[in-house]
Simulated assay, not measured.
Amino acid sequence: MEISEAGASVSEPVARGRHAPEEAVPSRYALQIGEIDVLVVSDGVLPLPTAMLGHNAEPADRAAWLKDMFLPPDAFDWPLNAVLVRSGEQTILIDAGLGLDPDLHLPRAGQLALRLEAAGIDLASVTDVVLTHMHMDHIGGLLVDGVKSRLRPDLRIHVAAAEVAFWQTPDFSQTAMPPGFPDALRSAAKRFTNAYSKELRPFDETHTVAPGVVVHRTGGHTPGHSFVRLTSGKDRLTFAGDAVFPVGFEQPDWHNGFEHDPEEAARVRVRLLEELAGTGEWLVATHLPFPSIGRVAREGEVFRWVPAFWDY
């Protein structure tokens, strides 16, 4: 079944399995980038105050944007997306979702392991994990009880060396998070590095994980924040992690509450959006509405998100 406009097709190897009976809406979406199989998987949603979308913006401007988008004024459900990639003999998980943090009471997130299982994906088949950064909604799924024992003993976890170094003594001075989140982030990062120190494969700036799968450090959101570019034939897709949020197309200079260097994060965002608007390649990001597959168009000095038409 072909997506004629996208030049992509549903990938049978990663699309098999059935939706869990309790699911009212789809939680995974398969496509193909050349010879690379891609599966976008929803980890659920993370409810956060709307001020987190742009804490440097005037409240009236932020409220106007939310109203124009038909979104509630006080709390916004941030989507959480991860990606499973098959390239050659490797199966690569890009980010691992939130997992479970009972102190934060987030029951609608942390669904990744269950949804991979529903898709027929055995955790033991994952050869590599790429982390865009080490915020808990990207590493927490690896900390769920019983997950590590189901992973391969030779698993490789690729993450920027600058990210690992940052979380040894993290600086939250420029963030604007709700209470409890800095402590939860710090705790999750410490637990992760303790649990997976032997599996870590730190890289400096650019690293090839598999044929056509290259990770690039961007910085900004966190010092080691990275995006992953998939390239096969004429097809390209960039998984941007937290480099862009729903408001970031129209308001790329608004600062997200989780950004550890907001000014640099805005520069990274603009550079990425300018590049994608020029190339027309696919974009997927952690916090764009599932399945978060689309393209970027230029609108004067700002940008426009153009979501893909779903292929049924």
Rank of each mutant, 00 (worst) to 15 (best):
S149N: 03
R191A: 08
F172A: 07
M177N: 11
T193V: 08
F227E: 05
V126S: 10
G140L: 06
A184E: 03
G141I: 14
M134K: 10
G233D: 06
A195F: 00
L237W: 13
R150K: 06
T169F: 05
L143G: 01
L230S: 14
A162I: 07
L230K: 07
D154T: 15
E163C: 08
V147L: 01
H221N: 15
R236N: 11
K148C: 04
S173A: 14
T169E: 12
D183M: 04
D171V: 08
T127V: 09
A210L: 10
V247I: 15
V247Q: 05
T222Y: 00
S149Q: 09
L142C: 06
M177Q: 14
V215D: 02
G180F: 07
K148W: 00
V159H: 10
V144A: 06
V129P: 05
L155V: 12
S187W: 01
M136R: 14
P178I: 09
Y196V: 00
F181G: 01
D204S: 13
L230C: 15
Q251I: 03
M136K: 06
S187D: 00
R152Y: 03
G220A: 04
V144C: 02
T206L: 13
L185A: 00
L237D: 07
D171A: 11
T218F: 03
I121H: 07
A240K: 09
V130A: 15
A160Y: 08
E117R: 03
S149Y: 02
V214C: 15
P178C: 05
K234S: 15
D204M: 07
G219P: 02
D145P: 01
V144H: 01
D171F: 10
K198E: 07
H133S: 12
G141D: 12
A160F: 10
K148L: 04
P246V: 04
T222K: 02
A243P: 00
D154H: 05
Q251D: 02
Q174G: 09
L237N: 12
V213F: 03
K148T: 03
M134F: 10
A184Q: 04
V228G: 06
G140K: 04
V213Y: 03
H138Q: 09
L185Y: 00
T206G: 11
R191N: 04
K198P: 05
D235I: 06
A195N: 00
M134R: 12
F181V: 15
R186A: 01
G141H: 11
Q174W: 08
H158P: 08
S226I: 07
R156E: 14
H216G: 00
D242E: 15
R156L: 13
T231I: 13
A119R: 04
E163A: 09
A124N: 10
T218A: 00
A243W: 04
M177A: 12
T175F: 04
S125F: 08
H138G: 10
V209M: 12
A161G: 12
A188M: 00
L131Q: 14
S173N: 12
H158L: 13
G212N: 05
P202V: 07
A188Q: 01
S149R: 06
A195K: 01
E163W: 03
